[in-house]
Amino acid sequence: MSRLSATFASLKANHRKALIPFITAGDPTPGFTVPLLHAMVAAGADIIELGVPFSDPMADGPVIQKASERSLAHHTSLRKVLNMVAEFRQTDKATPIVLMGYLNPIEAMGYAAFVERAKAVDVDGVITVDMPPEEAGDLLPLLQAAGIDPVFLLAPTSTPERVRKVDAVGSGYVYYVSLKGVTGAGNLDLDDVEARLAGIRLNTQLPLGVGFGIKNAETAAQIAKLADAVVVGSALIELIEQHCAPVEPALEEQALSDLICRMLRDMRSAMDTI
């Protein structure tokens, strides 16, 4: 069983839902990331989605775009992100890490070289935003052979046929994008999410994570009632945007990390009391 599957199984046995923070690696500086990963685990994160920055993040809203730009200003490459995972693994061998990004950096590194290195540093899953199952034919077998879960997205517009397609090739969990739009947009319609998740469950047994539109402890708890995992990204990254240089006064890295972890802890406790 993959580390992701084991994590979901153990959470389920304890009647808990997974809290999955997303941050962009190297934002606002490369040195900030690994200590933050450890701090987020201490604050209650069960799984971490680690964003690989890309110059053209087509599916992301302004908050994550700017995170990518801050990170790329320090030349954070896919190889460097994999090194960060290696560093994280020196002291944390339990928390699943899922890389999330766009296909081109993986194409540039080469599928085989990427998968080999990802396996070596113990990456658990890969979400490639602009690689739907139809285009995954070359990368999938490499990931599967390496025991890395390919995690796919589903959207409000996904048909039952598409859900079955994702179920057939994906593993670990499914990332349900709860809004039409880009990351960081709009407000959640909980009734709609509930109905859509019920529809999706007819066609897949994979754990369902919900992202897009989770802004605070209250929405995290509401989503935790409906889904197996709550993914929070833009709300955390907004904190970085508001408090890192060149914003004045910029917080010290430790204080910024504390702020992010406070939000996660609030979400964690709200999710655990549902």
Partner: peptide, 20 residues
Amino acid sequence: ARGHFGPYGGVFVSETLMHA
């Protein structure tokens, strides 16, 4: 049929656009 010109072309977009 899937929009490929040899290895080129295709549909490399997020799931949110696949239906449209």
